[in-house]
Design a protein around this nucleic acid. Structure first.
Lengths: 251, 251
DNA sequence: ATTGACAATTGGTTGGACCAACCGATAACC
DNA sequence: GGTTATCGGTTGGTCCAACCAATTGTCAAT
């Protein structure tokens, strides 16, 4: 169940572990193409010296990259960079934005997958939702509507609507997928995009209300239509990133 | 680009690294519910002693679990098990089958997400495919049709059709998703299911042929219909797992 | 030209030591 | 009595130095 969070005006102090910082730099290097698919990373001992960390820490970083599917490690041979298509979906946020650059094509690609996906999820949600989840939706609606709250807190409620809808499907896979997507929307590039656009979370309020009303009135068709409009609204935020970027580049 | 592989009559000797074996056992323990969400794993030093490995190796295993989103590690505190909904999609194959048990509900859940997803992918594929990819599809078709080849090799070609279709969309995210799915279909539980069912890879041949013919005749509608039928056929293999299991339990 | 043994390279594992964050218990304080 | 400050034990994070094991290329023997 999605529970509302505290307003998030401040950011955590980002106290990262050593190997995280190393893994991050290597990850960006691969995503940048500084190491191409098929090429080998330098030997662990060499990299450790370059990063000025112990080989143990360097190895833990490599382990992370391996988990992300970015490299394949073989004893005796080194760490080979794998094609990006083989990588885990967890790297998507970083494909979209790293080292200060945004890949507009990647943004479009993600949206093209996500939209039809969530449209289908909405269908299952209105079919299977349970009464308690309706109450939860109402609670989230109140947060989105509360203009006294911080903007980011209200956006968080919008993301949690997405998670709640996934809960309604009573399907663990949809739930996982929705949580991955919400995490993606919480990521730094998305935060930046919202900031640039100065969008108001309230724009999704009418669709939520229409959905609630339709569910009360037992009109699943209308509820589905409203829900899909809501989802399309979330998608627009993503797509607007491209517009915002062009605008910035033009000015 | 998907290229046909060598017949896979023999299996690789599965020479796993220490931390992989440890990570695997811990992962299954979590998926089993032997450690519940919110609970803490035993301290590293303790676990290392229990597994009879060095603490370094144990730590690398924990690092893997962390990458899978199964635990959250905090210095001074321990490793806390996270809810499964927060886990990475990479754990799906293991949710479905681990320690010899198959979770039929998980199988159904996965299929419910995958089907509509790939139907949409097929739509984009017939819209955007390039001529060279048609040739690749023909090559794969020949492998599927070649009754002289090992059964598993022909199934591999079927999976590569899925990857090829994703390439046709010219969308990296679809490509990643299809590769993840193909890997899922290659996983051990799926292999077992195919074995139980004694299904023939040739059953998808007619749909591939109809798709090729329709594309040649410039009838995208028919090509799409055939492609979706092909995908539904792949999905049936998954759904049949449940039937096979019931049958086994009944006998 | 082929094969086989060897050696260099590179990842895998170990043991032990110390640092740093967390948290609960205890003590000091109001 | 209740609150706050402090401290110490527990636990993860990092480092070091050494050795094991797989891979690959080299080179000699056939």
């Amino acid at each position: 169940m999605a529970t509302p969070r505290r307003p998030a005006a401040f950011r955590p102090p980002a106290r990262r572990r050593l190997h995280e910082s190393v893994a991050e730099q290597l990850r960006d290097a691969i995503l940048d193409g500084r190491f191409r698919a098929g090429e080998k990373l330098p030997p662990e001992r060499e990299l450790a010296a370059e990063f000025e960390v112990n080989r143990t820490s360097l190895r833990e970083a490599i382990k992370v990259l391996e988990g992300l599917g970015l490299v394949r490690v073989r004893q005796g041979d080194g760490a080979t960079v794998r094609p990006l298509t083989e990588a885990s979906l967890s790297v998507l946020p970083f494909m979209i934005h790293h080292d200060g650059r945004t890949d507009v094509q990647a943004v479009a690609d993600v949206t093209e997958v996500l939209m039809p996906l969530f449209f289908e999820m909405a269908r299952l949600a209105v079919e299977r939702y349970r009464p308690a989840q309706l109450a939860a939706l109402r609670a989230l609606r109140a947060v989105v509507a509360d203009a006294a709250l911080a903007r980011e807190a209200r956006f968080e409620a919008v993301r949690q609507v997405l998670e709640l809808v996934s809960d309604m499907t009573a399907n663990r896979v949809w739930q996982m997928l929705a949580r991955k997507t919400a995490a993606f929307l919480r990521s730094e590039p998305m935060r930046q995009a919202r900031h640039d656009l100065r969008r108001d979370p309230g724009h999704s309020l009418p669709t939520i209300d229409r959905c609630l009303a339709a569910l009360d009135a037992r009109r699943p068709e209308d509820a589905l239509a409203a829900l899909r409009e809501f989802i399309a609204g979330v998608g627009d935020v993503i797509l607007d990133m491209r517009g915002a970027r062009r605008r910035r580049a033009a000015s």
